[in-house]
Nucleic acid binder design. Structure first.
Lengths: 194, 194, 194, 194
DNA sequence: TATGAATGAGGATTCATTCAT
DNA sequence: GATGAATGAATCCTCATTCAT
C-alpha cells in the first residue's frame, strides 16, 4: 500500500536531483527513468507529462518545507523575537539539510518553467508566515512597510547565507549564520536610540 | 566598421529578451534568427555555439553593469555612507532601466547553464565593489563579517525590491525603495551591544 | 522474438544499399528511415549513431562472409590446392551473390570512415584464412614470403575479377574466372630457378 | 605569372591531404581555406564548385602519374620483360613517393564521388599501358586473356604491396617488393615447362 | 583577383509521449 | 499497473555557395 507512494517519491527525488545538477530541460524523461529504475511508461502513470512532474517537484518541496517550519503548539507561546529567530533558523536548517531543494527553489521559483498558477498556490501556502509578519508590523516590532517586502527580504536573507554555504567558497561558521540572522532582525526592526 | 558590432549587439539583445521571456532552453536558434532578422548561419559566425551565445549575453550584461556603477572622479571624494547609497541606487536604477538584464542575472547566475568559469570571471569583475566593502569593514563602518557575505547581501537587498517592482504586484513607491536601502544600511552597520 | 533482429537486418540491408549507391556521407538518416520504413528515432534505438550504423554494416558483412567461406568438415580433408581453389571460389561466389557487400568492402575497408579498431577486429576474424596460408607456406607449397602479403594478394586477386564483372564492361566468362584463379595460384607457387 | 598556378597547386595538395585524412565529404571548403591560407572566395575563383575541386585532384594525380611512368626514349628499346619491370617499379616508386596520391586513388577511384565521365577519361589516359599490355599478348609473352583483366591485375598487384607498406604493419623489405613483382610476372606469363 | 561575412537548406541527433504487450 | 520499443517533430549545427567590397 505504501509502494506507489514510495515510487512517486523516488521519482520526485530523482528528478529533483537531476534538475538541479543539469537543468530541467537538459534532463530527459529517459534519464529520470534510468536513474530511478522506473520505466518511462511508468513515469507517465504517475505524472501525465513532464510539466506535471516539474510541478510535482515544486509542490513536493513547498509542502514539505511548510511542515518543517510550522510552529508547534509549545512554540506559539514564545515572544515575537524568539519566534522570529526560530522561523528563520527552521528555514535555514531545512534548506541546509536538503540542499537540492534550496537550489531548486532558488533557480526555478521565478523561471518561466514554473507556471504562475503555481506561484499563486505558493503564496497561499506562505499564509502562516505572512500572518506572522503582519503580527510583527501591527505590534510595531517590525518596521511599517509592505509585508511582501518583508517576506521577500526574509527569504533573500536566508538565501544569502545558504548560497554561500553551498558554494562552499570557504567555511561558513555558526557565527556567520547568527550574524546573518542578526542582520535580518536589525534591518527589520526600529532602532530605539540614535 | 561599426556594423558587425551592431549586429552582434542586436543578437545579444534579441537573445536576452527571448531567454528571459521563455527560458534559455525553450528559445531555439531559429527563433533568435527570425526575431533578429539574422540568418541562423550568421549567428554561428558570431557565436560558435548556443552556449557561447548564452555566455555572451551574460558577459555583455556584466560588462555594461560595471560601466554604469563605477564611481566617477567627483564621487570618489564622497564619504562612505554617501558612496554606499550611491552604489546601491546605481545598481537599482540600472536594473530598473534594463529589467531583462536583471531577470537574466537573477534567473541564470546560479543555473547550470552558466559555466563556473564565467562565474570566476564575474568575481574578478566585482573587484571594485569588493574593495569598497573591505574599505567599509576596515574603517569599522560596516560590521566585521566576511566580505563575501556582505557582497551577496547587497545584491540580494537590491534583488528584493527589484523583484517586487518587476512582478508589479502593487505599486512600489520611492518610499519603499529608500526604506529598502535604509534596511540594507541598518543591517550592515548595527552596533553590537557592549 | 525474431522481430527485432529482422528490423535490425532490414536497417543494415537498406543502409548497405544506399551507402553503396550514393556514398556513405551522402546518405542521410532520413533517407534510410524512408526507404526502410523505420522511423528515424527507431534507427537510433538500434544504433546509437550513424557511425555505429556504418560499423554495424561492416561487421554484418564480415560476419556473414566468414560463415560462407569456412570449410565444412568434409572439405578439411581435401588437399591443399583443392582447398585453395575452394576458398577462392567461395569468396568469389559470395561477393558475386552479394555485389553490394563487395562494393562496400572494396570502397570502405580502407576509408577513414571505418575506424581502425574495426580493422583490428577484421584481422582477428580472418584468422582461419591466415592459418590456411601459413599451412601452405610451411608445407613449401606457397612461396616463402610474408603471410600478410599473401592474404592481401588473395583478396586483391578476387577483387580484380569481381570489379570487372560488376563494372559490366564486357561479359566475364567462366573461363576468365578460372584464368584468374589460375593466375593467383601460379603467382603464389612459382618455383624460383635454382 | 607562376603565382596562380602555384596557388592552384597548393589548393590541390591541401585538398588531397585533407581528403585522404578525413574523407572527402568531411572536408569542408572552410577547412581547405584555413589550411591552405587561401580565402574561401578565392577557392571558387579557381574551382567552380567543390565537385570540380575533387575532379581537379583526381586529374592532377592522374596526369602527374602519367608523366612519371611514361617510357623515355632510351627505355623503349628495352626488351619486354625489362619494360614490364620498369613500368611496375615506376608505378611503385611513384605511389611510395606520394602516399596520399595512392590513398586517394585507392579509396576514391571507384567511389560514387568520382563521376563516370572522369573514369572514361582515365581509361583513355591509360592507353599507353594498354598498348603495352596488348603488345605482350600479341607477342605471346603475356597470357591470352582480356587486356582489361591484365590492367587491373597490374594495378592491384601494385596496390597490394603499397597498402602493406603504408599500413606500416611491419617493415616491407626490398626483397618483398621484388617478390611481388615476380609474383605479378609469373602470374601473367606462360609456364614453359610443367 | 582576393576576401570572408552572410545565407538557409539540409543533416545528425534528441526527446516527450504513446501504446501494444 | 508496468514496460520499453517506436514515433517524428523539433533542435543544434554545418557547409557549399554567393556577393559586396
Amino acid at each position: 500500500m505504501l509502494k506507489p507512494i514510495t515510487k512517486k517519491m523516488d521519482l520526485l527525488e530523482t528528478s529533483l536531483s537531476l534538475f538541479v545538477d543539469q537543468g530541467i530541460q537538459k534532463t530527459s524523461m529517459a534519464q529520470i527513468s534510468k536513474k530511478s529504475g522506473v520505466a518511462v511508461g511508468t513515469i507517465y502513470h504517475h505524472f501525465k507529462s513532464k510539466e506535471e512532474l516539474i510541478e510535482g517537484v515544486y509542490l513536493y518541496i513547498l509542502d514539505d518545507l511548510g511542515k518543517h517550519i510550522a510552529f508547534k503548539e509549545d512554540e506559539i507561546v514564545l515572544d515575537f523575537k524568539e519566534r522570529f529567530s526560530l522561523l528563520w533558523m527552521k528555514g535555514f536548517n531545512y534548506y541546509i539539510k536538503y540542499p537540492n531543494r534550496f537550489r531548486f527553489h532558488d533557480t526555478y521559483s521565478y523561471s518561466p518553467l514554473i507556471p504562475n498558477s503555481l506561484r499563486e498556490y505558493a503564496r497561499a501556502f506562505y499564509q502562516t508566515a505572512f500572518d506572522f509578519v503582519e503580527e510583527g508590523i501591527s505590534k510595531k516590532i517590525l518596521i511599517d512597510t509592505h509585508p511582501v517586502l518583508i517576506m521577500r527580504w526574509l527569504y533573500n536573507s536566508l538565501a544569502t547565507i545558504i548560497q554561500i554555504k553551498l558554494d562552499n567558497e570557504f567555511g561558513v561558521t555558526d557565527k556567520m549564520v547568527s550574524t546573518t540572522l542578526e542582520m535580518t532582525w536589525q534591518s527589520l526592526t526600529y532602532k530605539t536610540e540614535e
